[in-house]
Design a protein around this nucleic acid. Structure first.
Length: 569
RNA sequence: CGGGGCGUAGCGCAGUUUGGCAGCGCGCCGCGUUCGGGACGCGGAGGUCCCCGGUUCAAAUCCGGGCGCCCCGACCA
């Protein structure tokens, strides 16, 4: 491709409404163009990269035995009522009416459609297992699109769905997809971390997410270098240091704590560790007020809490609701609280002689002990894992907390959808049973966005070779010199003939602009033809994008295709 | 949905406080000089000042209403 013909210009200034580095690069490099919040047009360079990602995905899906289909974006709302997810998705689901006023939705994902498809076409155990996938547009009216391609309202996603006769079959299908996912990310040149994940609104049992580490990522995850344990913070388990040994339970006493309403203030005032205090947090779950107690140095993991409560709506209680429940915010404790559901984190049941609120303004108790002074309706693990907490899976590992972008997610759905849709098959014994399902997603556009967010330097994008729009960025300098231009044209033809994809900067621009654009666009290999490279013969300079500026190697133009292949990963 | 910010040429912005010719830089077009890290000279084109309404002799600027975009939070497959 001659750059003089390429649609899409690079920008010199950062766009004003892009905040993350990756988003700025997407716009400045002319990869995408925004149409509305979370809605983008993809320009030729971005599309080439996405097509390469899709090719890798197709090859791995096909190799794993999955078959490609295409299901509709526009669907009758009845499908979503049947699964109960019209409600679950709420305002995220795009609704519309057709000309006969029938309610339709724009599909945010395709479990409903694929389960409907399976129930129509799969009738016997002989038809199973089967795995169907597609690469299709998804629409989700996200409350807040953000960070360029990371969270958008219209996006391309590969989604695969496996159907099996039983749990063991599902386990095997899931394993195949996990292996395919590793292959996909490895081939795309991405260093992803697989983490245990919460399955959220999808339901089901096992679930894991594939994270690309990036400081601007939306998700937090913990990893253990010692044993390899990795989990989304939403469901991570951890060990934390026990509270300092307080010895045998002492007599409870009440103390004045003027204006001490936070744990930090309280611990500072009393010159004790935060882990020697108990903290109270208040939630409303499906309309019910809930009192939660946890050790003072720990925080409540709301996802864990919500799961322990069996789903439903969970939110922090308002000040009014706290007051209405007769609780003194800032001095609350489980001691003496009645008529409210009390949930305790495991931490609050260990240790002794805690400082806790006295349920009276400016007063706290000393020497509060679980079992003697207070009790809980439920004791569960709802502590948030933190940096430097101990690994729950091994004895000597410490957890590292990082941020990541979720580029893939796999779930074992079980029979949730097949039962809702009557997607049954007949066993060898003539018995009718629901199919066991799994679903497996990769966001194609998000993956591109995540790559650019995580693989870059101050000058621009550094594309992994396998998903770069082009292999080689050929830069021709000295446009007034016919000999140079001829040599660059020849090199362009040679590289192309050798099967390499070449972006040829044939524009009448200065060297500075051309090199800057080459760095900005981030093709893996740059070939320069100029008076300097031609000083001792018809040579070109090859330089990897990831290498520093002065590390070029000079090779004869005739050898360039061979050398380029050797240099490219 | 709560909080904050913004909307003026393709992009980045000034001008709005105190109403009075719509500006600057980059980019774009033409000519010339330059040519290895975002060159220079000369000439030029380009505007629904987000939209609607109001006040005024006069509105980018003041008032009312609306829309859009970004960030933080909530939410999130």
């Amino acid at each position: 491709m001659r750059m003089s013909q390429l649609f899409g210009k690079t920008l010199r200034d950062d766009p004003s409404d892009a905040d993350t580095a990756g988003h700025r690069l997407l716009i400045r490099a002319g990869l995408v163009s925004q149409v509305a919040a979370g809605v983008y047009s993809y320009l030729p360079m971005a599309l080439r990269s996405m097509r390469k990602i899709e090719t890798v995905i197709r090859e791995e899906m096909n190799a794993a035995g999955a078959q490609e289909v295409l299901m509709p974006v526009i669907q009758p709302v009845e499908l979503w009522r049947q699964s109960g997810r019209e409600e679950a998705f709420g305002p995220t689901l795009f609704h519309l009416h057709d000309r006969r006023d029938r309610p339709m939705v724009l599909a945010p994902t395709h479990e409903e459609a694929v389960t409907d498809l399976a129930r129509r076409h799969v009738h016997s155990y002989r038809d199973l297992p089967v795995n169907l996938y597609q690469i299709q547009t998804k629409l989700r009216d996200e409350a807040r699109p953000r960070a360029g391609l990371i969270r958008v309202r219209e996006f391309h996603m590969k989604d695969a769905y496996s159907f099996d006769v039983d749990q063991a079959g599902l386990d095997a299908s899931y394993e195949k997809m996990v292996q395919a996912y590793w292959n996909i990310f490895r081939r795309c040149g991405l260093d992803v971390v697989a983490v245990e994940a919460d399955s959220g609104a999808m339901g089901g049992s096992d679930s894991q997410e594939y994270m690309l580490l990036a400081d601007t990522g939306e998700d937090e995850l913990v990893t253990c270098a010692a044993c390899g344990y990795a989990a989304n913070v939403e469901r991570a388990r951890s060990r934390y240091a026990p509270a300092p040994d307080a010895g045998e339970p002492l007599d409870i006493e009440i103390i004045d704590t003027p204006d001490m309403t936070t744990i930090a203030e309280l611990a500072g005032f009393l010159s004790i560790e935060e882990s020697q205090t108990l903290k109270a947090v208040f939630y409303v779950h499906d309309g019910e007020f809930i009192f939660v107690a946890i050790r003072g140095d720990l925080d409540v993991n709301e996802v864990k809490l919500a799961n322990a409560l069996g789903g439903g709506e969970l939110r922090l209680a308002t000040d009014e609701e706290v007051a209405a429940a007769g609780i003194v915010a800032g001095s609350a404790s489980p001691v003496g609280i009645e008529n409210v559901r009390k949930i305790g984190d495991v931490s609050a049941t260990q240790g002794a002689n805690y400082v806790a609120g006295a349920n009276a303004p400016h007063k706290h108790f000393r020497n509060v002990n679980y079992g003697r002074d207070f009790d809980f309706d439920d004791v569960i693990d709802i502590a948030r894992a933190e940096q430097d907490h101990g690994c729950a899976d091994c004895d000597d590992g410490a957890l590292t907390l990082s941020r990541g972008i979720e580029v893939g997610h796999v779930f074992k759905l079980g029979t949730k959808f097949s039962e809702a849709f009557g997607a049954n098959y007949v066993t060898q014994d003539g018995e009718e049973k629901p199919m066991f399902m799994g679903c497996y997603g990769i966001g194609v556009g998000r993956l591109l966005g995540a790559v650019i967010e995580s693989s870059r330097d101050d000058d621009g994008i550094i594309f992994p070779a396998t998903i770069a729009p082009y292999d080689v960025h050929l830069v021709s300098l000295n446009p007034g010199d016919d000999e140079i231009t001829q040599a660059a044209d020849d090199l362009y033809a040679l590289l192309t003939a050798a099967g390499l994809e070449v972006l040829y900067d044939d524009r009448d621009e200065s060297a500075g602009i051309k090199f800057s654009d080459a760095d900005l666009l981030g093709m893996p290999l740059r070939a320069t033809v100029s008076r300097r490279s031609m000083r001792d013969g018809r040579n070109t300079e090859l330089k990897l994008r990831a290498a520093n500026r002065d590390s070029a190697t000079i090779v004869p133009i005739e050898n360039a295709p061979h050398q380029a292949r050797a240099l490219l990963p």
